[in-house]
Computed example of a mutant assay.
Amino acid sequence: MEDNMDESQSQKGCKECCERCVGSLPWASLIATILLYMGVALFCGCGHEALTGTVTILQNYFELIKNPRDLLDVFTIIDILKYIIYGLAGGFFVFGVLLLVEGFFTTGAIRDLYGEFKITACGRCLTAFLMFLAYLFFLVWIGVTAFTGLPVFMYFNIWSMCKNASLVEGANLCLDLRQFGVVPISEERKVCTGSEKFFKMCESNELDLTFHLFVCALAGAGAAAIAMVHFLMALAANWGYLKDASRMQKYEDIRSKEEQELHDIHSTRSKERLNAYT
């Protein structure tokens, strides 16, 4: 009988411990971090491979080569974009870790207000600063998403041209890089539907793969922007909870001091009465 009671008590203890651990997890920050990492990884990986495929298409089908005399040509811009992708991957990895740590700390501080953790003004200021950074990075990802939509639109036009050229007989369509600003106006780099290069480009795997990679990169940028919205909501809620918890802590401190003062007054009066009787 005693063994069964001990087992039931141990099971209740394990259950309470598991519930406490699960309840102390910052689920909003955790979900936002996972969504942010997935979006950034999808954007950076697919964006890097899509830029590499773009270079291959320009070199193979448009015969565009890098000119050493040009300081800022399309290949240099693509290399700069790759470095920006590397910076985004590293920077947002660190930023996601900071936000997740802040979520863990805030959740623990709220649930253990009168225990080991203490609500301080520094913690509230840190949460407000991270909320400000999250808002700025949300605007950055909105811009990145809009910028990523440009190559998706361009490749969709090329894909449509390939489909229309095969369906409509005698269609005379040309793809000129000058209309996209890739080459100067004085330099003519175009491929028309009647040429062999155009059909090779349409039938190649580079065009289809690069188009779908840009679409995936656009989806990743959108997911990262949504993750920043989740972070903003979580940080705003944490800041409000911290503010309310700080007020509650001040109220409890004042009430404990008043109770201590009343207790001291009662003890002093009781001593005075005892001395008067004696």
Rank of each mutant, 00 (worst) to 15 (best):
K118F: 07
T52G: 10
L51A: 13
L51W: 05
A109V: 02
T56G: 09
C122L: 12
L81K: 14
L58M: 11
V74M: 12
T54V: 05
I119K: 03
E102V: 05
G115V: 08
T107H: 11
D112G: 14
E63K: 10
L100W: 11
Y61H: 12
T54I: 01
A109L: 01
G87N: 08
V74K: 05
T107K: 15
L72G: 01
G87T: 13
G91N: 04
L98M: 11
G96N: 03
G87I: 13
I110A: 06
K66D: 13
K82L: 05
F95E: 03
F62D: 03
A121C: 05
F92I: 00
A121Y: 06
I78G: 09
L81A: 15
P68C: 05
E63V: 07
E102Y: 02
I84E: 06
V97W: 10
K66R: 15
T76A: 11
I80W: 11
V101P: 00
E116P: 06
G123F: 10
K82C: 03
G53V: 00
N67D: 12
N60M: 12
R124I: 07
A121F: 04
V94F: 09
F95G: 01
I57E: 01
F105P: 00
E102K: 02
I84R: 05
N67E: 06
L71S: 09
L98A: 09
L100C: 09
T54A: 13
F92W: 03
V55E: 13
R124M: 10
G90K: 01
I119L: 07
I110S: 09
D112K: 14
G115Y: 10
F92T: 02
R111M: 12
I78E: 07
L100R: 08
R69A: 14
I84D: 05
G87Q: 06
V94C: 05
L51V: 09
F105A: 10
D73T: 03
G87P: 01
T107E: 12
A109K: 01
L98K: 08
L72M: 09
G96Q: 04
D79N: 15
A121D: 15
F93G: 02
